[in-house]
Amino acid sequence: MYYKNPSYKAFYYSNVTVLLLVSLLCILPMLHIFAVSLSGKSAAEANLVTFFPIGFNLESYAKTFENDNFIRAIQISVLRTVIGTALAMTVTVLAAFPLSRSSIDFKPRNLYVWFFLIIMIFDAGLIPHYLLNQKIGLVGSFWVYILPHLLNVWNIILMMNFFRALPKELDEAAIMDGASSFRILTSIYLPISMPAIATLSLFAMVGQWNNWFDGMLYMRSPDQWPLATLLQTIVVALDLSKTGINFEDLEMLSNRSVKAAQIFIAMLPILAVYPFLQRFFVKGIVLGSVKE
């Protein structure tokens, strides 16, 4: 066997070392920020912290959670993530099922495929989108976070390919028993498609939670911003005048360890769901991208 060969063994152990270093490199920046957020103000400002907190305290988190603007932003983020994911997944699953039928069983299938393909390859651009949302009254409304994200053609494709890879015998048997399309989808396809649904839900959730741009673009008042937009203005753009937070709080919020705490709070929901859904998504993506 090749792996008994001494030169391969040398390669193997150096390979393991390199890959371990690479994977450490992927989480060290986050670990550093976490350590800073738990450190005392003086140690953080003097740049003494590496990967372990110095002068451990939770003050930065307490200060952040005392601020009403943050609490409101977190509420909006949670709301848009829950509602947005649930609705987008419904639209995706419902659309993927008919498209997974063959064009013999469902003749207009290819017409629909073209209908969706066109929007995938041509985009109207930022300003026409803005003007449309303005015209239909979504600017300044919470629903601008939900409705424009209902349709994601890529997710429909992944879901459709997953459905197509399921054994045909399943629906033949169900049709024999007189099941309607809705029945086949809800009683047969959905229960066995959990890996794909978990994967796409994770994508949709992350997309909603992380979206900062639509808050900035469509909301006139910072009170309507989700957490990502607030964070963008405070931590990245450093444009504190826009946030409407009073002056004393601002001084407190620009403290380095408080900023680190805010970044970590924004990462937390993703860190919490990710390990549970991770075991699904490799399977989900792989099956979704394989064609028969």
Partner: peptide, 19 residues
Amino acid sequence: MLLPAVLAALVFKYAPMPG
């Protein structure tokens, strides 16, 4: 089943195109 996706596409993807 396709109706919600088609409506979403018409309103949010096709309608901005004349713009």
